[in-house]
Design a protein around this nucleic acid. Structure first.
Length: 347
DNA sequence: ATCCTGACCTCAGCTCGTCG
DNA sequence: CGACGAGCTGAGGTCAGGAT
């Protein structure tokens, strides 16, 4: 078998039909008209055109298209509208110019891409100060409690020290649900170990589902309804379009689509960069897949596994006990079991 | 007045190809 | 094989002008 690293890499460069892309939106149509009749573009039109073209580029090639893609777009632009040709060597330096002598690439298209990435990074870093934080609490409405807070505290204390009788645990957990929700949400966030230390009965089977059905009565039943029919297919289609699907879509068994989509998440959502001392570090996709989902064969000794996981990895993560060939999405899923491991020591 | 966006800029760090 | 440079991205800063 030939060494993959020695294989020549062919990059498919899309042909950009600038007129078609612009004509697809009303604002773009008037820009095309203006360019055809007047052979010029206003500052306002130029900005609008760059927005339309860059959003098309991102749709086709993702948020970090290669320089080849950007050159193809800029070149297609001046071919479609020769009046936009500038005096630079390439003719499109105003629109896209490759970086040189340690200076980054520039041009209106490049700058727009950069600004979009900036916005994306900003929003993915969590809530913005002031305005957005103010709106968050109004969206999450905790239903009114059925018991007083004093009583709820008493229930929580009892639940810390008792795991039986089960009917009593379920009843106290039901009645103290709103208190728990308020405690967890106070001061913005608490870690999973903190929450479990305070409310250990959350690990009793069915308790999280009970909380969910009380707090989110309407959407709770839809949680599992929508993953496979709605989101799994969308994630698989997106992965296919971005060339991140390791096998033909038709070969993914209907039963396996939900699990394949879950395993695609770390591939589709590239891990962010973080600082380790002075160095900027980014986990590879393979590393984040391992951190996110650990795949072990059915029959793995859970006691030994959890003991080992306690010292070797951070929680929570998904443990998939596979029966068959799910690894690397080569799936024929039969009796796979999925666990969410939140605290290895809890077993 | 305040916020948002675009444009311009710098710096750190990464990947990849080239050269000795 | 390691050093080095080119090209690139990410992150962040600043400022002007437009929108609200």
């Amino acid at each position: 078998m030939p060494d993959a690293t020695m294989m020549p890499v062919l990059q498919i460069v899309p042909v950009f039909d600038i007129r078609a892309v612009l004509s697809a939106v009303p604002e773009g149509r008037s820009i095309v008209e203006s360019l055809d009749t007047d052979q010029l573009i206003t500052g306002k039109e130029r900005k609008a055109m760059v927005r339309i073209l860059v959003s098309h580029l991102i749709e086709k090639c993702g948020e970090t298209p290669t320089a080849v893609m950007k050159i193809a777009l800029a070149s297609a632009l001046i071919n479609a509208f020769p009046c936009l040709n500038d005096d630079s060597g390439s003719g499109f330096g105003t629109w896209y110019a490759k970086g040189r002598s340690h200076h980054p690439a520039t041009g209106f298209l490049e700058e727009r891409l950069r600004n979009i990435r900036k916005q994306l990074r900003r929003s993915s870093r969590g809530p913005r100060p002031q305005r957005e934080q103010e709106t968050v609490p109004s969206r999450i409405v905790i239903p009114a409690a059925t018991i007083s807070e004093e009583r709820a505290v008493q229930f929580a204390e009892w639940l810390k020290n008792n795991s039986q009788p089960l009917a009593q645990v379920e009843a106290y957990m039901r009645d103290s649900c709103q208190y728990r929700a308020g405690w967890i949400r106070a001061d913005h966030s608490k870690s999973i170990p903190e929450v479990l230390a305070m409310f250990p009965r959350l690990t009793t089977p069915g308790m999280i589902a009970q909380d969910l059905s009380i707090l989110f009565a309407e959407p709770a039943p839809k949680l599992f309804e929508t993953w496979v029919p709605l989101y799994a297919d969308k994630i698989i289609r997106l992965a296919k379009r971005e060339g991140k699907l390791a096998l033909p879509e038709e070969q993914i068994n209907l039963d396996a689509r939900g699990e394949v989509a879950l395993m695609l998440l770390p591939v589709m959502l590239p891990p962010p960069v973080y600082k380790q001392g002075r160095k900027l570090v980014r986990a590879s996709v393979e590393e984040s897949k391992r951190f996110f989902i650990d795949v072990k064969p059915v029959g793995t000794n859970m006691v030994e596994y959890l003991e080992q996981a306690k010292s070797s990895r951070s929680c929570p993560f998904v443990l998939l006990l596979e029966d068959g060939m799910l690894h690397s999405y080569k799936c024929r899923v039969k009796n796979n079991q999925i666990w969410v491991v939140s605290q290895p020591s809890a077993g």
